[in-house]
Computed example of a mutant assay.
Amino acid sequence: MCVIRRLVQAPVFVVLLSSGFHAHAYGPLGHEIVGAIADRKLAGTPTAEKIKTLLDGIPLERASLIADDIKSWDKRGPDDVRGIHLRDYPKIEQQLHDFWNANPPSPDASDTTPSHHWMHYTDVPVLNAEKYSDGKRGRGNWDVVHTIPYCIGVLRGEIPEDNPRKITKTIALILLAHCAGDIHQPLHVGAEYFNEEGEAIDPDRGATGLGDEGGNALSLVQNPAAGRPRHYYHSFHGYWDLDTVRNLTIGTPDEVPKEQRESVYASAKEKLIANFVANEPKNWRTSGDLKTWTEQWANEILPIAREAHTRVQFRHVHREEKDGRVFAKGEAHEIGTGYLDWSTQVVGDELH
C-alpha cells in the first residue's frame, strides 16, 4: 500500500541519495497522480535536482507515463512517426529506442531477450492464498518483481548502464516511476487460471491451465445498484487500471465527453493530490533489504488480488488463440453488489 510514499522514500529516491551517484502505480490518470505527488513531496530537495538532471527536466508526473507510451511503437517500431515520442529530449528518446530494441514485444521473447511488456506485471495464481515465492507459474526473471531491483542496481552503479537490457540510469528512473504504480495494482500481480472446461484451477498445484492475461481476457459485469444500471466493462484489468481511478477522482467510473475532460478532471485531480500530499497514511514503510521490497509488495497485494477475483463469478470461459498466444477468455460477473465501492477504496489506499 501507499505507493506514493514508497516511491518517494524507497527504491528510486533512496538509491539516488545513498549510492554516491552525482550525475549533472494504473492507467494514465493513476500514474500521473503518483508522479505529481512525488514531484511535490521532493520539491526543493537535492534528490529532486538529481532526478531533474537524469530526466532533463521532465517532471515525474509526465515521466511516469513513458514506459506505457513506448507501447505505441510495438506494431511498427520506435521510428514510427505515429507513435508517442519525446522529440524535445533527443538523448532520452534515443535511450528509449535502444531500450525498446533490446526488449521487443516478440512472440519469441525469452529470458535472454525479454519483452518490455513483461516488466510491468507478474501473474501469480490467486485461486489459493499463496505468496510470490510459493510457485513458478506466472512469475519470471523479468517480471515487475525482478525489474524494479534491477533498476535499483543500475542506479546504485552495481549494474553497468551498458547492460544487455539497455537500462541506463535514466531508463531505470523512468521504469521505476511507472512500475512502482504497477506493482500496487492488484491485477498487475495476481491472475486467474482455468482448465479447458472453464473451471478455475491452481497451476502451481499440478494442472497447467490457461491464464486470463492478468484479467485482460475477461470482461467485468457489475450488477445494478443504487440507481446505477447493470454495467459491462470490456476488460477486467482495464477496469482496475482506469475506471476505479476515475471513480476515485471524479466520482464516477464513466468517462466524460472529450470536450469536458479538462474542466472536470483538473480541479478534481488537484484536490485529490493535495489531500494525499497533506495526509500521510500509517504503517506504509517497508523493512529489510531494498532487494526484497518488491517481493514484499507483491505479497501484500496478492490477498487483495485474490479478493478481486473471489468477489466475481466466472462465466463462459473458453480457450482462445490470438497472435500466437493461448489464453482463457470469458466474463467475470459481480457477486452481489458493492464491487465498485470496494475496488475504489482499494485503489485509494494503494495510490496513497
Rank of each mutant, 00 (worst) to 15 (best):
E259Q: 06
W293E: 13
L60I: 15
P224R: 06
G138Q: 06
Q222E: 12
Y89H: 15
P78S: 09
G20Q: 12
Q222F: 05
P229G: 10
I58L: 01
V144D: 05
H318W: 10
H85E: 11
E300H: 09
N195Q: 10
R261A: 05
V347E: 04
R228Q: 13
V264M: 07
W73P: 00
V221D: 03
S72P: 01
T47M: 02
D143I: 05
L187A: 11
D243F: 02
P114W: 13
L218N: 03
S19F: 01
D289V: 12
R319Q: 14
L55F: 00
N101T: 08
G251V: 02
R205F: 15
P160W: 06
P11L: 13
K131T: 13
G44V: 05
D68N: 14
Y150N: 03
I84A: 06
K52P: 02
A305Q: 04
H31G: 03
N141H: 10
S219P: 01
T344I: 03
T310C: 09
R76T: 10
D212K: 06
T170P: 01
P257H: 02
A43C: 07
A38K: 02
V8W: 01
T147V: 06
P125G: 07
I183S: 09
F236R: 00
R40E: 10
F99G: 02
S343F: 03
T344S: 00
G27H: 02
P90Y: 08
R246Q: 03
G251I: 03
H120R: 13
E350F: 12
P46D: 14
R285I: 04
G181H: 02
I51W: 01
A298N: 01
R87N: 05
K258D: 09
L29K: 01
V144L: 07
G336A: 06
Y150G: 01
G206I: 11
I92V: 10
V81E: 05
I304F: 04
L29I: 03
L220T: 11
P224H: 08
R40L: 13
S19T: 06
D212R: 04
K136C: 09
T244H: 00
W100L: 06
G206H: 08
W118K: 12
S110T: 15
Y265S: 12
K91L: 14
I183K: 03
T344G: 01
V347A: 11
T47S: 02
L248T: 04
